[in-house]
């Protein structure tokens, strides 16, 4: 303990010597830029006088009496009746509008329908040769529409960042919570649940990895497989608690995995967009359709998306339950 403090102090004094480290120390939270430079005073709480409180209370009572007096309040009666009539009219007209719209839709499965255009025809005819993926849907969303999927992955990243900004607690607060919290009734160290999780968790993880790796061969892909792995992580946390989970999935691992996968997706994707948009030859081999190592960029992107989604699922659960990973 003492040695650690000394090292910290040493680091601090070294940091203060350098001018460029001022920004770093602010970034790490060691130094508050307002501290010492600005007068900070706690805000006084507003306390209304008892006379004012009584007057407000009386006014509110009078108002409520006047409003809730149905017999004399003509406006209220009219409003109530008109509200019912208008609600029925609105619902009926809305239903009529929807039914009318449905009646204008073309019948299902006809060759002349507008959804049978050259785009889907090309996906079906050329998709296998151009993407190397047996599953056309995966081939479509990860190559033709990889840019769109990249945006979706970014949405997940930004969503977890926002939840972290709002719900993440300081380490000191977390430790205090562990000693006196109101969760003592929550089932902890349940023998039945732990036994079941001991059997099920590895199976769930393996199934999630199978779904991710088989995304271009059949139903599956990064989003669904990542959700399965995230659910397995949540089950593990519920059964064994945060301390045991943090041995293999703590904040450092979370940050590394999430940011690495997103950056990898960005790099692979941008290589693909740039070569594709400029007509340059794409050097990623498509492989033999049906094999695991095929489909060009689809497999690595699926793995990246899977890691991203699994991290997001687990982070949401951990942040909402405990306020930290």
């Amino acid at each position: 303990m003492n040695r650690r403090e000394k090292e910290k102090r040493k680091e601090k004094s070294e940091k203060e010597e350098k001018k460029s480290s001022r920004f770093e120390s602010w970034l790490d939270g060691d130094r508050d830029i307002y501290d010492g430079n600005m007068e900070l005073r706690p805000q006084k709480e507003y306390e209304p006088s008892p006379y004012l409180l009584r007057r407000q209370e009386n006014e509110r009572k009078k108002m409520e009496e006047r409003v809730n007096d149905v017999a004399r309040n003509k406006e209220y009666r009219v409003f109530k009746r008109a509200y019912r009539v208008l609600a029925v009219v609105f619902c009926l007209s809305f239903i009529a509008l929807l039914v009318l719209a449905v009646s204008w839709l073309p019948p299902v499965g006809q060759a002349g329908n507008p959804d049978n255009n050259e785009v889907s025809a090309r996906y079906i005819e050329e998709g296998l040769q151009e993407t190397g993926s047996v599953n056309i849907v995966t081939g479509m969303i990860l190559t033709y529409r990889a840019f769109d999927t990249f945006g979706e992955t970014n949405v997940l990243f930004i969503a977890t960042c926002c939840v972290m900004v709002m719900l993440m607690l300081d380490e000191a607060v977390l430790k205090k919570q562990e000693t006196d919290n109101d969760r003592k009734y929550e089932p902890k160290n349940d023998a039945i649940l732990q036994g079941m999780a001991f059997i099920l968790c590895p199976v769930i993880f393996i199934f999630g990895i199978y779904v991710i790796l088989g995304g271009h061969l059949g139903p599956g892909g990064g989003f669904s497989g990542g959700a399965v792995i995230g659910a397995g992580l949540i089950l593990y946390v519920i059964a064994f608690g945060f301390k045991k989970t943090q041995r293999f999935f703590n904040e450092a691992v979370y940050k590394t995995a999430k940011i690495t996968s997103l950056v990898m997706y960005g790099l692979i994707g941008s290589y693909f967009y740039i070569t594709g948009a400029n007509g340059i030859e794409n050097h990623i081999p498509l492989g033999l359709p049906g094999h695991i190592l095929s489909g060009g960029i689809i497999l690595p992107i699926n793995i990246c998306v899977g890691i991203e989604v699994a991290c997001t699922m687990y982070a949401f659960y951990a942040l909402f339950r405990r306020g930290g990973l």
């Binding site: 089932p187 079941m196 059997i199």
Partner: peptide, 21 residues
């Protein structure tokens, strides 16, 4: 097999929470 593993365990947890709270 999965459902037979998962459903009774979740029921057990709900029952335990009810009994303790």
């Amino acid at each position: 097999l999965f459902l037979w593993c998962a459903s009774p365990v979740s029921s057990h947890l709900i029952a335990r929470l009810e009994v303790t709270t």
